[in-house]
Each structure stands twice: as C-alpha cells, then as structure tokens.
Design a protein around this nucleic acid. Sequence first.
DNA 1: ATCATAGTCGTCTCCCTGACGATAAACACG
DNA 2: CGTGTTTATCGTCAGGGAGACGACTATGAT
Lengths: 256, 256
Amino acid sequence: MPAYDPSAFPPFAVTVDLVVLTVRRHALCTLVVRRGEAPFQGRWALPGGFVRAEEDLGAAAARELVEETGLCAYDPAAPAPVPSNGAHLEQLATYGAPDRDPRMRVVSVAHLALAPDLPAPRAGGDANSARWAPVEELLGEDAAAGAGGGGAGTLAFDHSRILADGVERARSKIEYSSLATAFCPPEFTVGELRRVYEAVWGVALDPRNFHRKVTGTPGFLVPAGGTTTRQGGRPAQLFRAGGATLLNPPMLRPEV
Amino acid sequence: MPAYDPSAFPPFAVTVDLVVLTVRRHALCTLVVRRGEAPFQGRWALPGGFVRAEEDLGAAAARELVEETGLCAYDPAAPAPVPSNGAHLEQLATYGAPDRDPRMRVVSVAHLALAPDLPAPRAGGDANSARWAPVEELLGEDAAAGAGGGGAGTLAFDHSRILADGVERARSKIEYSSLATAFCPPEFTVGELRRVYEAVWGVALDPRNFHRKVTGTPGFLVPAGGTTTRQGGRPAQLFRAGGATLLNPPMLRPEV
DNA sequence: ATCATAGTCGTCTCCCTGACGATAAACACG
DNA sequence: CGTGTTTATCGTCAGGGAGACGACTATGAT
C-alpha cells in the first residue's frame, strides 16, 4: 500500500448540492434551478456550488441555502430561538461516480434542508430560473418516463437519485423524530402538522389518532400561549416545537 | 453567484475512511491501524486511503476493506449467495473541516462496514500495526480522558468522531433492519444473534422475548437445515439470514 | 446422579394503535 | 336566524406487541 503522499493525489472538485424540501398546497415540493450552461443546459437541477478553499462542508451548504432561498440554517444543537426563516439542514450523502459530471471529477456532498412554506423562490438574484417543483412530478413515483430512466422532466446529472434519497430520508426521519415541525412555521396547529405528515408520506391519517399521538408524546409539542387561529372550522390550539427531538415510540407510516 | 467554472475550483484530496465493526468476545470492536507518518505518528487511526482518479467512492471503500482485512463487501442488492468472508458496507458520512488534516484540504467519505468475527487483522501485509480495538475503550463511553476531549488513547484526526458516528449508526440501524446478521457467520443461532445485539447495544436482553421476536418476524430468519451446534448448553437451531431487510415493527433498544 | 448452562415454549399484563362514535366551535349559506 | 359544512378535540373499544417471568428440555461438567 503506497504511503500517504500529500503531493500525489488525484485532483477532485468538491461541491455541495441541496435537496430543499417544503410543503406547499398539500404537496411535498423541492427547490430546483434551471441550468444555463453546457451539460444539461436548460434542464432543472438541484441548487449547489463549489465548496470554497477554507470552508467547512456544512458551512458551504448553509451558504448555498441562503443564496438560493434566503433561509437561515439553524444548528440542531441550538435551543429554542429558531428564527422565523430558519430551516433544518443536515448532511445527506456523498455522490462521486467518476462520470457523474462529464467535465471533470466532481464529488458532491448532498445536504437535506427542510423548510416551512415560503413566499416564492429567488434564485440568488435571477428570478424565474428557480421554482418549487412537486416531488411526485420530478420522481414520477409510478415508474416515470418509459425506458432507461432518463425521462423527459428528469433532473440533470444524478440529481434524481439525490432527490430520491433525500425524500426517503425525510419520509423515514419524521417517523422517529420531531423533524416534521421543521416544515411548519414557529407556531402551528395539530392539523397543520398532520397535513405535513400527509403530504410527506402521501397518505391520509386519522385526525383523532394523530392528535392523540402528538399531544400525548411528552416534549413533542408545547402549547404556545394557548391561543387559536383559523384555517376553516373550529379554532385550534397553537403549539410550538418542544425540546424533544426523538419520538419514542415512533409514529410509523402506514404500510401498503 | 459565479458561474460554474470547471477550471477554477479549489483543489481537494478525497479519501475514504473505514469504520469496520465486529463483535469479538462479547464486545463491539473496530479495526484501527497505527500511523507511521508525520501527523499523529504512532497514534491509532481508522484505515483509509485516497480515492483513485477513475474510482467510485463505494469501490474505493471496498478496495480498502479488502486491503486491510481481506473482507469482500457484498452488494446489498445481491440475493442470497453471501461469501463466507463477506461484509456489509455502506456509506456513513463525509467529513471535510478545513483543518482536519494539517497538511492539506482533505475531504474524507467515511464508510461503515459490519463483519463477522475474524481470525486476526492483517494490515495489508504489515502485521502488528493493526488491531481490533474495543469501541468502548476508544470512545470512553463515560466521558473519557479529562478535559479537552483529546484523551490519551484517542484516535488521530477526527477519527474519534467518525467512529462515534459509525457506532451510533450501527446501534440504531439494527433496531429496524436485519443488519445484525452481518455480524454473524452465514449460519448462526438465535443466541449468537442475541449476543450481537447485546454487544452492540451494551445491554442485556431477555433470551425468551428475543427468541420470540426474531423467530416471529417473517423473513428475518430461515432455518438452515434444522441442524444444531453447541456453544455451551442445549443445542440450538441453526438459522441463516432471511430475505427481509426491514424489521417491522422494529426492535427498539431498551432505554436508560 | 447432580449441577450448570442454554435453548425453547407459554402465560399474563400493560400500553399503544387503529377504527370509529360523539361533541364543540367556528363559518357560509339560505 | 337556523342549517349545513368544516375542522378540532375527547372517548371508547378491540387487537397486537412487548416486558416480566415460569416452566421445561437437552447438552456438558463434576
């Protein structure tokens, strides 16, 4: 085995790609930007960019998140003071197939961000080249776009795979953590939280059992001023996310 | 935002580091190698190495695994034919703090490998510079080594963090998947599987309830010839891993 | 023969969950 | 102003799974 030689290593570019998920109009959506350049020109892609020379991976992801959405990533270690435009950010996985970028060897550290519903995307200054796309539309949950897998509306590079991995991570993680509150504004109702679960999982949940589960789990929700708001029918109690991060026992998504 | 310019990117080195876990003598152990060079010379570190120019990340990890242990990583997609010296291999996370290697900017894609108990480590030809170290000894589950966190026996670089993340991944993943069988030989008894859980979680489990759970979960275990073996008392039935990869409902580790 | 060690089968109770009835509090109508 | 609709919230009930154990079985060690 060759010795660890700092001067003889293959040159890599390292980027971060972002899977930014939100719930809009009862559907799970992700932020995509239109490519203006050579490979996959005109196709939609996940936002991302190069990691700078003296920048940590998480910092690069947070920087890209601000540039693309204006969202401020909050540290999971921090206590309650979540800014109103805060988003959950975590590392997802790293993708480095030799041919994933035809121009050169690029290793991309994908990150997953969960954000509450936002007014409109602003692509770092360039408008209309970014949008919230329903995940179902991009992934075609039902075997999209004929043979080969490279359907019409599929994302550039291996971004479809990255998106699929990010969505699956989000779907499984809200089972056993309180992460679903990251999709909600600072104060929210039980019904709003339930609609988040329904949108992410793509299923319908029983309102009564859901209410019992989330209000009965200590530390999950704390009443926020006991106030109410309206969204249709009877006013609902407002909550904010409690300190608990782990849901035990978990709330398993219904099978089949 | 600067355009995607392939010729102007900061130079990175990309490596893979391996958290190879196994269960030896009732204890969760990991493979560590002794560093012979400049930074952290003489300290123990996780095995790893550079990703080659035309090599996929997973391939690089599998190559390192063979070089260090002789273990052959099997693809999770593959069916039953698991080689006797096969190991589970999956990507863990990527670590890229700017100062994690004092010599240059190195981004390391850590991987997690789970292997059955092996005779003895062979460090790619170099013996006695590799060993199976009990995880508890390396991580000091009980706030090891005074202040600062850089205790006496701690690993080089940020490898203690990587190891901790890998161990936590393994601990949580055997809850809801059949991954614990990766620590066992192709044929094993329920008691051996239980001792794996006990070693990984560091708890004692009720043999009766454990037996009921694993034999009652369809697809988890399949009887292997109905044969028996001895390990002390009454002979036990032999099983091999079934096709099921997900455990539903999960087997949650006891709290506190 | 007796003991120690493991494996395996049962039982009992508690808690959680899914299914679903019932009530409450707002709004949109006519 | 009543009625219907929508949503929130509380209750009830049956079934399943898990923790706590008792009991029995089949080996080897003494």
